[in-house]
Design a protein around this nucleic acid. Structure first.
Length: 603
DNA sequence: CTAGGGTTAG
């Protein structure tokens, strides 16, 4: 406390031996000076000097000085909770403010249990909590995700008449959201008289956290119509995430424009979210372009771009970016590795996939999760290594889920392995799993093997389970409207034109040497009907419609609910040449980019 | 008298 004190250098305090000689010592002034000095402390050492002086000057017993000491020490970046607590315990009769600051300090250093304990002590000491106590204590509950305590404290809020406080309400929205109690969260939100940006932020991120994407966008819409539309990055990031999951490319684009117009620069989180929107909505180039221009890339940005490239079938490029990431000294985590393995799987890079699966475990110490196993089963299945895939499933330390069995079943269909398919199906058709498409996969596999009896049996079982398969459909966006087609669709008002176009397209295709691959129609019907069914697959209708209604050379984007058949694949490749169109088709798994007669998936 | 709410991406 002696030596080169900052206090003496700044001449803020008279040395102790002098001040006692001044008869009319102004305590109020000294108090102010001490506090101003305290607030300017840059480290604990400075602070301790001020503390010492306050004690020496006899100012500690002014509760205002003492509480400021506690607050400053508990809440400053250089502060120390131990020291703050020791000051706190020196105070005879701590009040609301002192308890509040200690609670906040504890939360700041994530000592959440202790914060809750302090709150209890506060109540026991008969100190009444106020509108500052609850935002803090509710935050602690939210971080701990303790629903019951949260509800109890909500009771206290009502008891102390604080339920009208905006700050408290925002905190309540947040804690209920974090605990998944959306009814309660929304109830608080809707009762609010004065919603602030923080209220919107809390309710939107709560929905985003639970994957309630449509709700998320609906509330965002309400926020805009109530005129609360501000460049609030955290809100927009949640909304962008919703866009990604819902395939809302247009809204994503709007937000991108808005951000660029209204902010001087984008941070890494916003940029990563934007890239994810573009990649997952089919705009590979746009996403890549943003990625390349990023000033700061982190682990997540790399993860996004790697799994995005995987989604588009660009396995080699994904691996290239991955090695770039490693070169930059960034450690991959489990999510990054899912991206890498799925890139290998989508691009058929079997050797690389097997290698990375080992490297991940033995060089990066990442324990494979069920998702990693999923990628490997896909990868092996695609390559026809069906027995190996089954062995891998059996060797897993965890219970295989239906995703794995479904993947194996799908591969068995591709490689016509009835025997293994039945193993997969047996595991898949559990009492509580009702998935019509699994039955259909199996039935189609039997059909391909001409086992009509088994087809009939499977179909009967499907019927017995009372399952209805959603029909395969293709949607295409024309002039900002989405048009959906199903196979043999005649419901569309302009369907005559579509069928005429289809006819014209077939003519052109014949010149290019296309002949319909009727083996894709897995039904026991005659050749002519097969041909007819094949030619009116939903994807072909959607393409015909888009060719009529969009300008020349414009990009056609189609979204499918199931995977496309190989005939549609060949067909679309040829159409992309004949009509000089780029066509992007998103199926359940990934994107296919058709351009000049080839597809990005490499067949 | 002092202080505070929501914080987001794969």
């Amino acid at each position: 406390m002696v030596g080169t004190s900052v206090l003496y250098q700044n001449n803020f305090l008279i040395p102790q031996e002098d001040y006692s000689k001044i008869p009319e010592f102004d305590y109020a002034l000294k108090e102010q000076e001490c506090i101003s000095l305290m607030k300017r402390s840059k480290n604990l050492r400075d602070f301790k000097q001020v503390h010492g002086h306050i004690v020496k000057l006899g100012l500690f017993w002014s509760s205002f000085c003492a509480s400021n000491l506690v607050a400053t020490c508990a809440l400053s970046d250089w502060g120390s909770m131990d020291y703050a607590c020791s000051i706190f315990h020196e105070i005879d009769d701590p009040g609301t403010f002192e308890f509040n600051t200690i609670i906040r300090g504890l939360i700041k250093e994530m000592n959440l249990d202790e914060a809750l304990y302090m709150y209890l002590e506060m109540l026991e000491a008969g100190v009444e909590p106020d509108n500052f106590t609850y935002p803090a204590i509710l935050k602690a509950c939210a971080l701990l995700k303790v629903r019951n305590e949260g509800m109890q404290i909500h009771g206290h809020v009502v008891k102390f008449g604080l339920e009208e406080d905006t700050f408290v309400q925002n905190s309540l929205i947040n804690i209920y959201g974090k605990c998944g109690e959306m009814r309660d969260s929304c109830a608080v939100f809707e009762q609010m008289d004065h919603k602030t940006i923080a209220s919107w932020s809390a309710i939107i991120s709560a929905h985003a956290n639970l994957g309630m994407w449509s709700e998320c966008l609906r509330i965002f819409g309400d926020m805009n119509s109530e005129g609360c539309w501000r460049a609030e990055e955290s809100v927009l990031v949640s909304v962008l995430s919703a866009c990604t999951h819902l395939g809302e490319l247009d809204l994503g684009r709007c937000i991108h424009c808005y951000l660029v117009r209204n902010l001087s620069g984008l941070n890494v989180i916003v940029e990563t979210s934007l890239i994810d929107v573009y990649l997952k909505c089919g705009c590979l180039e746009k996403g890549l372009c943003l990625f390349e221009r990023m000033a700061n890339k982190n682990q997540m940005s790399y993860s996004v771009i790697i799994s995005g490239l995987a989604l588009h079938g660009c396995g080699q490029e994904a691996l290239k970016v991955f090695s770039q990431m490693l070169e930059e000294g960034m450690e991959p985590d489990d999510v990054t590795c899912v991206g890498v393995l799925s890139a290998c799987s989508h691009a058929g890079l079997v050797k690389e996939g097997l290698k990375w699966f080992d490297t991940m475990r033995f060089e990066h110490g990442i324990e494979p999760t069920i998702q990693h196993y999923g990628c490997m089963v896909d990868l092996m299945g695609r390559a026809g290594m069906l027995n190996e895939a089954l062995e891998l499933i059996k060797s897993m330390p965890m219970e295989p889920n239906d995703v794995l069995w479904r993947s194996l079943l799908g591969s068995c269909k591709v490689h016509s392995n009835v025997e293994l398919a039945e193993v997969a199906a047996k595991n898949l058709f559990q009492p509580n799993s009702h998935n019509a498409s699994d039955y259909l996969t199996l039935s189609n596999l039997y059909a391909k093997a001409q086992k009509w009896q088994d087809v009939a049996f499977t179909r009967t079982r499907l019927a017995e389970e009372g399952l209805n398969q959603e029909p395969g459909s293709s949607s295409v966006e024309v002039k900002r409207k989405v048009f959906k087609f199903v196979s043999q669709d005649k419901s569309h008002p302009q369907c005559e034109g579509v069928y005429e176009m289809l006819h014209q397209m077939e003519w052109q295709l014949k010149f290019e040497g296309y002949s319909p691959d009727t083996s894709q129609v897995l039904m026991d019907v005659d050749e002519e009907e097969k041909r007819q069914r094949l030619s009116t697959h939903s994807q072909k209708l959607a393409i015909a419609f888009a060719l009529i209604h969009t300008s020349q050379h414009s990009h056609i984007r189609i979204v499918r609910n199931v995977r496309m058949c190989s005939d549609c694949h060949v067909y679309t490749k040829l159409i992309s040449t004949i009509y000089e169109r780029e066509i992007t088709v998103r199926d359940r798994n990934r994107f296919h980019h058709f351009k000049n007669g080839t597809c990005s998936c490499g067949d």
